[in-house]
Design a protein around this nucleic acid. Structure first.
Length: 501
RNA sequence: GGCCCUAUGGUCAAGCGGCUAAGACGCCGCCCUCUCAAGGCGGAAACGGGAGUUCGAUUCUCCCUAGGGUCACCA
C-alpha cells in the first residue's frame, strides 16, 4: 500500500437525499485523496433495490458539483475500473462468493424469512447457523432444484480478528462476536457488507473512509479480505456527527440535508468549511478554509475521535463570514431573488428599480442566512403608520419637537440637493450637523424615522433616503412633519402647555 | 443486554509529562456608531470520578461513571 497512488471512494446510496453526514464523509474522502495527490472515485451503492429513489443520482451529482468535490472516476464520467454502479456489476459478485464457498469461508443458507424472524423474536442472538454444516453436495443439489438461497459468511468460531484504524488505532474483537452475515441476498444482489469489499478491492481503493458507525462491522470485512487474500485497505473511520441531543444526526433533527441547508440560506462554501472543521482540526488557529485550502492543509492526524455536535450557531457564523467576503456583484445577484420575493424589484410608487447595490450592501453585515435578506424591508414598499414616540431617542437626545424642527429646516435644502446619492446625502447631512453644532445622530435619527416609521431598520437614514429617491423621501418627510405638528398641537391642547418644549 | 468506541468551558477544538490549559462560536459588558448590525476591546465559562506509574499528570495504565455506536436478505 505504501507507494501506490492513493484512491478513495465516495459510495452513497441513491436514497434521494444528501445527508450532511454523508457529505462530510465525501469531503474527507476527497481530502484524503487530494492531499496526497490521489484519485477520488464516485460509486453508487444501489444493492438495496427497495430503497432506490428516483432522481437520486442527479442530487448526488448536483451536490458534488456545487460544493466542488470533483470525482476522477464515476458513473457519469467513466474510468478504468467501471462500471461504477453496483447494480451494473452484478455478475461480478457471485463468482467471488462461490470462491469463498469453495474455500470453506462461506456457505449456502436456505432458511426462510419466517424462520429468521422467529429466531429474532426468540432470545437467540443473531443467526443460529442452522445451514452452516449442510454438505456442499446437498447444498448444490437444493440450489439446482430451485430452492431460495442466500450465501452467508462462515465466521471462525474461535480466535480474534483485529485491524488498525488510522484514527482509532488497533481494534480487536473476538470472532465469537461475529455473525454469519449474508453476502449474497436471495434476489441475487450482494449485501453492502460483501459488495464494499469486492468493489473496493477491484477498484483498487487504498483508503477506506467512512463513518465510525462502521467500526463494529469492520472485523467482518477484514475477515473477508483475509479469506480472499486481498491486501486490506487503510481504514479511516470518522467521528459521528451528532444532533443537539447528542444522538447521531438524522432527518428528525431538522435541516440535515445539503439541499435543506441551501434552501435555508446557507452558502455551499460555508457548509463545506463548517463540515470540514467538524471532526478535524488544522492544529493551528485557522478557521476559514476554501476547498483548496483544505486540500493543502489536510492531514489524517488532525481527525478527531470524539463525536461532534452539529451547531447551527457556528454554521451561521461561517455563513455570515462568507457573506461579508462576497464581491459586490456576487452578493447583489445572490440576494436579488430574496429581495424580489420580499419587496419586488421595483418601487411601488414610481416603478423605478430599487438600487440593489445599496440594498445588498446595507444587508451584507446584517445577514446570517440569505433567507434573512427579505425581512425588515417592508417599510421601503409602504410607510408604516406614524408613531410620535419613535422620535424619542435617549442616547441620540432626539425628541418629536426637536425632530420636527430639524426636518423643517432640512426640507428646503433636501429639495434642491444636487447629488441625491448615498455620498451626497451623507455629506449634506453631516455638514448640516456640523454647522449647527449638533451630533450626526440628531439629524440622522429624525430623517430615518420620518422615512421609515420603524424603530429598527437595516441601513441608516442615508441609505434609505437614497433608496427611496428624492420624491418619496420628501413625501415621507412632509407627512412626518404634518403628523408631528398635529401631535404637538393636540398635546398642547391636552394639558395646556407644550410637552415638547 | 453483548461487543466496540468516546470523554478538555453550553458547542467546535488546541494540548501529545512540567503551560497563568490556546483559539473559535454562543453569552455578558464596554467602546465605536445615523437605529440595528458589523467592527474593536474585555469578561464569565473546561481537563467526569477513583486508584496507580512518575520528582511531576489534562497528557501514560487500570477501574468506575457517563455518553454514543452497533448487533437486518439497510447502507
Amino acid at each position: 500500500m505504501t507507494d501506490r497512488r492513493v484512491r478513495t471512494r465516495f459510495a452513497p446510496s441513491p436514497t434521494g437525499y444528501m445527508h450532511v453526514g454523508n457529505l462530510r464523509t465525501a469531503i474527507f474522502e476527497y481530502l484524503v485523496a487530494k492531499s496526497q495527490g490521489g484519485d477520488f472515485i464516485l460509486r453508487i451503492e444501489d444493492t438495496d433495490q427497495e430503497r432506490i429513489v428516483e432522481g437520486s443520482l442527479e442530487i448526488i451529482y448536483q451536490t458534488l458539483e456545487t460544493v466542488g468535490l470533483r470525482h476522477d472516476e464515476g458513473p457519469d464520467i467513466g474510468g478504468a475500473y467501471g462500471p461504477y454502479i453496483q447494480s451494473e456489476r452484478l455478475e461480478l459478485y457471485l463468482p467471488y462468493a462461490e470462491q469463498l464457498v469453495e474455500a470453506g469461508h462461506a456457505y449456502y443458507c436456505f432458511c426462510s424469512q419466517e424462520r429468521l424472524r422467529s429466531l429474532r423474536d426468540s432470545d437467540q442472538l443473531g443467526y443460529d447457523r442452522h445451514c452452516r454444516d449442510i454438505p456442499p453436495e446437498e447444498a448444490r443439489r437444493r440450489v439446482a432444484a430451485g430452492e431460495s438461497w442466500v450465501i452467508r459468511q462462515k465466521m471462525p468460531t474461535s480466535g480474534v480478528t483485529g485491524f488498525t484504524d488510522e484514527v482509532f488505532g488497533y481494534i480487536e474483537v473476538s470472532n465469537t462476536e461475529l455473525e454469519d452475515q449474508i453476502l449474497i441476498k436471495s434476489d441475487g444482489f450482494p449485501t453492502y457488507n460483501f459488495a464494499n469489499v469486492i468493489d473496493d478491492h477491484t477498484m483498487k481503493i487504498t483508503h477506506v473512509v467512512r463513518g465510525s458507525e462502521y467500526l463494529s462491522s469492520t472485523p467482518k470485512y477484514q475477515l473477508l479480505y483475509e479469506a480472499f487474500g486481498f491486501e486490506s485497505p487503510v481504514y479511516i473511520h470518522l467521528p459521528l456527527i451528532l444532533g443537539s441531543d447528542r444522538l447521531k444526526l438524522s432527518k428528525r433533527h431538522g435541516a440535515t440535508g445539503f439541499q435543506d441547508l441551501v434552501e435555508e440560506g446557507y452558502l455551499p462554501e460555508a457548509i463545506i468549511n463548517y463540515l470540514a472543521l467538524l471532526g478535524w482540526s488544522p492544529g493551528d488557529e485557522r478557521e476559514i478554509f476554501s476547498l483548496s485550502d483544505l486540500e493543502r492543509s489536510f492531514t489524517i492526524s488532525g481527525i478527531n475521535k470524539a463525536p461532534a455536535v452539529f451547531d447551527y450557531d457556528k454554521l451561521n457564523w461561517f455563513n455570515s463570514t462568507y457573506i461579508k467576503a462576497m464581491s459586490h456583484e456576487d452578493l447583489r445577484e445572490t440576494l436579488r431573488p430574496y429581495i424580489d420575493a420580499s419587496i419586488g424589484l421595483k418601487r411601488p410608487y414610481d416603478d423605478a428599480p430599487w438600487d440593489l447595490e445599496i440594498i445588498s450592501e446595507m444587508l451584507r453585515a446584517r445577514l446570517e442566512r440569505l433567507t434573512d435578506a427579505g425581512t425588515g424591508l417592508a417599510f421601503l414598499r409602504e410607510l408604516p403608520p406614524h408613531d410620535t414616540e419613535l422620535y424619542f431617542h435617549k442616547k441620540m437626545k432626539t425628541s418629536p419637537e426637536q425632530s420636527l424642527d430639524i426636518l423643517e429646516r432640512l426640507r428646503p435644502s433636501l429639495a434642491v440637493l444636487d447629488d441625491w446619492s448615498t455620498g451626497g446625502i451623507y455629506a449634506f447631512l453631516t455638514d448640516f450637523a456640523r454647522r449647527n453644532e449638533i451630533k450626526n445622530g440628531q439629524v440622522m435619527w429624525p430623517c430615518r424615522i420620518a422615512c421609515t416609521n420603524t424603530q429598527v431598520t437595516p441601513g441608516g437614514a442615508v441609505e434609505i433616503m437614497a433608496l427611496l429617491g428624492r420624491e418619496e423621501s420628501l413625501r415621507r418627510i412632509d407627512s412626518a412633519t404634518i403628523n408631528l405638528r398635529t401631535a404637538r398641537n393636540t398635546e398642547g391642547e391636552k394639558d395646556g402647555s407644550s410637552h415638547y418644549n
